[in-house]
Design a protein around this nucleic acid. Structure first.
Lengths: 223, 223
DNA sequence: GGGGCCGGTCACAAAGCGGTTACAGGCTCA
DNA sequence: TGAGCCTGTAACCGCTTTGTGACCGGCCCC
């Protein structure tokens, strides 16, 4: 589980990094906006912590840029009382915020909640019922069968569905989580991806029993 | 469970509405004081969220007006540090307040606490009497019967009627809520939709006992 | 009694959506 | 550079949902 921490205040950055490292996360520290974007590309972290005031590019700009290509959870660090900042941050797609100063405990709690919501459960081979996902190997196994190789998008979709096994996941949410926020017509993409995934995991792709269509979206039946 | 949200800041209004909708509440959004009062009369919501600074009528004035005719729980949105505002709001009968900026989680927690305190059954926002709506699966269950699959429009209609269970909902309002604002002749659509819904939920669609026609519109009998 | 209005019902047309197939562009890697 | 895979796009099919028009019967008012 990788977390990118961007803050120009060295002390605060170290505090955050220390807290997260202690909790078992792999932390990437950067001191400014441009570096944040660069490392984001290189590392594709599972979560981003962004200070608003940074040299080079503000946290807003970084957030916006990240949102253009990813739905990764973003936490913004704000100064208490600057509510326009907050509104702006949430408008740009930040998922949560923390007022400075904050306690390490609070940070951890929020971060875990966000990761849970995003379905990026930390324990490695994610599994539910008879479905087991291996995030490192990019494979799924159904029941006692052979592991099946997945692509990056297929894995993300599977992960989201698995995190919500047994419950319908809204198409829009899937779209946002798998591709990141994008414009309209992308239902077709989801349709395609589901089709491809079914070809791989269903015994009879024409009569799915695992990955079902539901009125509002799709759901995974894991047991 | 219906919540009226009044705030002139569109972003914040959307954020609040999003949070509450996610949590299963039916949200009515208004941008200013006069509209808030108007919709309050029309919808009789179960709870009101009021910003203090609004064009037309301030949150104070709206709160005062509401208190003259109803004991509905009211949450005021205040700016941190403006203690006079706070005192005044509570003096006018507001039940709780939130300092801006606030987290969606906090809002939900306070709101639930208030509803619980007000004795409005809050646990399952989408059920009333023997009717239970599942927004995730797009189904209704009546009494102990099997869940019935609904379409998107049928679900929206059901949600509106359920939020007003026992009371007649005006046809025009149903039209506006289910289809969004459109031109005149759409009575026919509502007629059709009601017909289709009755086919699905009534034991004898020709002699409805749940979804009744009333002078000005329709009403749901949930008990 | 007759006409108009309104809600319920029916039948059919139009639009939308999911599943499928096919293909093209881009990327990686040999 | 070329093969192979991944991803995005378009087109088609069939089914479901939604919209529209027509008809019927009750009710009210003239």
């Amino acid at each position: 589980m990788k977390v990118l921490v961007a803050d120009d205040d060295g002390d605060l950055r170290d505090l955050v990094a220390f807290t997260l490292t202690q909790a078992g996360y792999l932390v990437i520290k950067v001191p400014d906006g441009p570096t944040a974007l660069k490392r984001f590309e290189e590392e594709s972290p599972d979560l981003v912590v962004l200070d608003i005031n940074m040299p080079g590019l503000s946290g807003f700009q970084v957030c916006e840029a990240i949102r253009k290509r990813s739905a990764v959870p973003v936490i913004m660090l704000t100064v208490r009382g600057e509510e326009e900042d907050l509104v702006r941050a949430l408008g740009l797609g930040a998922d949560d915020y923390l007022n400075k100063p904050f306690s390490p405990r609070t940070l951890l709690a929020r971060l875990k909640a966000l990761l849970r919501r995003a379905g990026v459960e930390s324990s490695a081979p994610l599994s539910s019922g008879r479905i087991r996902l291996d995030l490192e190997e990019y494979t799924v196994r159904v029941g006692g069968g052979e592991p099946v190789q997945l692509t990056k998008l297929e894995l993300r979709l599977m992960q989201m569905l698995l995190a919500n096994a047994g419950h319908t996941v809204n198409s829009d949410r899937l779209l946002a989580q798998v591709w990141g926020h994008r414009s309209g017509g992308d239902r077709a993409l989801l349709k395609q991806l589901v089709h491809r995934l079914r070809q791989k995991v269903e015994i009879d792709p024409a009569a799915p029993v695992l990955l079902l269509t539901s009125a509002a979206g799709y759901k995974l039946i894991a047991d």
